[in-house]
Design a protein around this nucleic acid. Sequence first.
DNA 1: AAAAAATGTGTAACCGATTACACATTAAGA
DNA 2: TCTTAATGTGTAATCGGTTACACATTTTTT
Lengths: 346, 346
Amino acid sequence: MATIYDVAEKAGVSVGTVSRYLNGSGYVGRKSADRIAAAIEELGYSPNRNARSLTTKRSGMIGFVVSDLANPFTAEIARGVQDTADEFGYCALIYNTDGNAHRELRALNTLREHQVDGIIITPPEIPEGNAFLAELIAQGIPVVLLGRDMEPLVTDFVSTDTYLGAVIAVDHLLELGHNRIACICARNAAFSRRRGYMDALTQAGLDVDERLIVETELTRQGGVDAMTQLLKLEDPPSAVFAVNDVTALGAMHHAIRRGVSIPGDISFVGFDDIVLAEYAQPALTSVAQPKLQLGRTAFELLHTRLETSDPIEPRRVILPCELVRRESTAVARTVTSRLQRSSSDE
Amino acid sequence: MATIYDVAEKAGVSVGTVSRYLNGSGYVGRKSADRIAAAIEELGYSPNRNARSLTTKRSGMIGFVVSDLANPFTAEIARGVQDTADEFGYCALIYNTDGNAHRELRALNTLREHQVDGIIITPPEIPEGNAFLAELIAQGIPVVLLGRDMEPLVTDFVSTDTYLGAVIAVDHLLELGHNRIACICARNAAFSRRRGYMDALTQAGLDVDERLIVETELTRQGGVDAMTQLLKLEDPPSAVFAVNDVTALGAMHHAIRRGVSIPGDISFVGFDDIVLAEYAQPALTSVAQPKLQLGRTAFELLHTRLETSDPIEPRRVILPCELVRRESTAVARTVTSRLQRSSSDE
DNA sequence: AAAAAATGTGTAACCGATTACACATTAAGA
DNA sequence: TCTTAATGTGTAATCGGTTACACATTTTTT
């Protein structure tokens, strides 16, 4: 592999000049520039970034740590991060941890050894990981948290406003005339979504019916279980809001199997807008998180830290969710019939 | 950031000793080792891989270039690559190219600058990319092709046997007693799947009915279009094999909308086994590609090249596909009725 | 007990870049 | 025309490691 010395020799100049030529720093004469360009071309020279980063202390790489790269949600964020990093001339070192504390620590450690300029991380809570992150931040390695809010940690943070997303979802159902809206949620996660659900109801002057809030596993089966329970009620809901799509789909499909017409009898709204939502039958109305934008923003936050050594006070960016209306929601039956009645009254 | 010199000083030994300690090379006395360990602990020392790779000429990083990281199929492969790389102590520099020639070239170039030890690449055909790859290989950077067979290129290659996958899919339908099996395929892609379809039929002694082979876009809408066409036939098929899941789902859902009962009237088999297949209603029988295994194998191929400098003759690994039976396939109606007839005959 | 082998350590060159500094040359200003 | 300023270039130290080599000490062998 050709080095800068080979180029310098071939071009008949010094390495200093070649280096200046490569970096566009300092003065380089027209003649020298041409000869250097020719030499580089001829030798197929490619600068060695490792050597470079040894002196500059900047590797041009960032680390991205996720718990599951195969998860479509994460994958899209990863894509946003990579795309944006690429735009700004950075490389992304992507690490998958499987939510395993041991792997997460090793990832962070390896990233540091490789001298990444900064880290974007979006894993589940692991105390040791948090401690390590704090250490990295203390050592001056910028860190941006993605989706994970770390209370005592002072650094940038980007996520989506899932609370408002839930409010939007429920408001949508309210506007369609539903007033018995169920919520399928998790026992110990996604609390802000549940809170959004409740607040939206209260705001609309409706009472929260505890029997309509079903806690379950956030899986397809969990959705099935929850729906079974809801259909057993003497007065079942006319609409269901589930805190994630997989659960919503499980619930919806179960309802279909039980002979419920959708959206005729019951409307469904999910959350996350995974690909499945679009392809489901009927297509599921869902609250979309701006996944790509999450990745982009995370990198942009990191980037401003990379480009300045001045201390920046931690920023937190909360991106809005968006309701994607599809076929699983419609005007409430009671309203429909009322409308029909009123029209026949005329 | 502490350096090896700081550690040496604090431990009262020379840098050489510290280096030997870190790498487990050469002799290091018990006493020295203990003091070095203490010094490292105390200083929070983390070796600088960049400096290291400058002398060793091994960066411990590999590049992984894909056209779309957000694609669940690719994402899972990426995960396999990353997981395996991690196992072997390597980092993965992941590059997304969007199938854009310009980005692909930049990716390869940047990877080279960062001195990656090897590259795994799985993008669409781009002549410039191929040329660049050839150049990298000539420069001694190991390259493993994933899913893309590059005729004139001499290097390792891993993919799945989609031809056999198609044969398996059609055989499955044949076993269920279907003899009018349609094929929804692409105009200019996935030829081996189509070939598998035809060969399986021929092998079973059936004639290939050209009207049952429908060329379309490999999208959901394409599936809908193809199904429309198939349902128009005076003698529609009793089973449909689509060369990918999205198309299969489009076709299946369209059939459902047309009042066709599935799998009662028509059976469907897709290809790729994307998550959607499992969640579809009815769940789609599909041919699964061993995605994670693809990633693993790709890295393993690369790894043997990384660990030896001896020339290795190019290997090609073709992984088998597997049929995942779900709800969209059942015994052919004609057979069912025949069975019923014969049982009533008794 | 002497020779040979094994163990342990320090020194200094080297990997491939960057960059401060000194010095030379040319162009512009007075 | 003589100063200054602008432009252009080479030298050498430096970044943080690795490693060949020389040398010292200890252990084993005969």
